[in-house]
Simulated assay, not measured.
Amino acid sequence: MKTSEYISFTIDRLPKGYVFTYADFTTEVNKKEAVIKALNRMVESGKISKLSKGKYYKPESTPFGKLQPSQAQIVKDLMENDGKIIGYLTGYSIYNQLGLTTQVSNTIQIGKKEVRTAFKRERFTISFVKQKNTITKENIPLLQLLDVIRYIQKIPDTSPEFSCKRLLAILKDLSEKDKNTMVRLAFKYPPATKALLGALLDELNESILAESLYKTLNPITKYKLSVDKVLTKTEKWNII
Rank of each mutant, 00 (worst) to 15 (best):
C164E: 02
V75E: 00
G65H: 01
F124V: 00
K76D: 06
Y6A: 08
L143K: 06
C164Y: 02
K31D: 03
Y6D: 06
K32R: 12
V230D: 01
Q73S: 11
Q153D: 12
Q97K: 15
T181F: 03
I208V: 14
S45D: 13
G111N: 04
K76P: 01
L174S: 05
M182W: 10
S127A: 13
L171S: 05
D157V: 11
E161G: 01
I208R: 10
I110T: 11
R13P: 12
K233F: 11
I74R: 00
G111W: 02
T134S: 05
N218A: 13
D24R: 10
L197Y: 06
Y56F: 11
R123H: 01
K222P: 07
L167H: 01
P141F: 09
N238C: 10
I135R: 04
T101Q: 07
I135P: 01
A72V: 13
K66Q: 13
P191G: 05
I140A: 10
K47Y: 15
D77M: 09
L100Q: 02
S45T: 14
F162Y: 10
S226D: 07
L217Y: 03
S175Q: 09
G46R: 09
T10E: 04
F128D: 04
C164L: 02
I240C: 06
A118E: 11
E211W: 15
T62A: 03
N96S: 15
T102N: 12
I155T: 06
Y88W: 11
M1K: 12
Y88P: 02
K16Q: 11
F119H: 15
Y88M: 09
T221E: 12
F20P: 00
L217G: 08
V75A: 01
D157L: 12
K120Y: 08
A38K: 05
T117N: 00
R41E: 14
Q97F: 14
I220A: 06
E28R: 11
Q153S: 10
P160W: 04
L231M: 01
G99M: 05
T27G: 13
S61P: 14
S163P: 02
L197G: 06
D147C: 14
T26P: 06
I208L: 13
K37Q: 14
S49D: 10
Q153I: 11
Q144K: 11
S159C: 03
V129L: 08
Q73T: 06
V35N: 03
V227T: 01
M182T: 11
I85V: 15
Q71K: 13
I240K: 05
R184C: 11
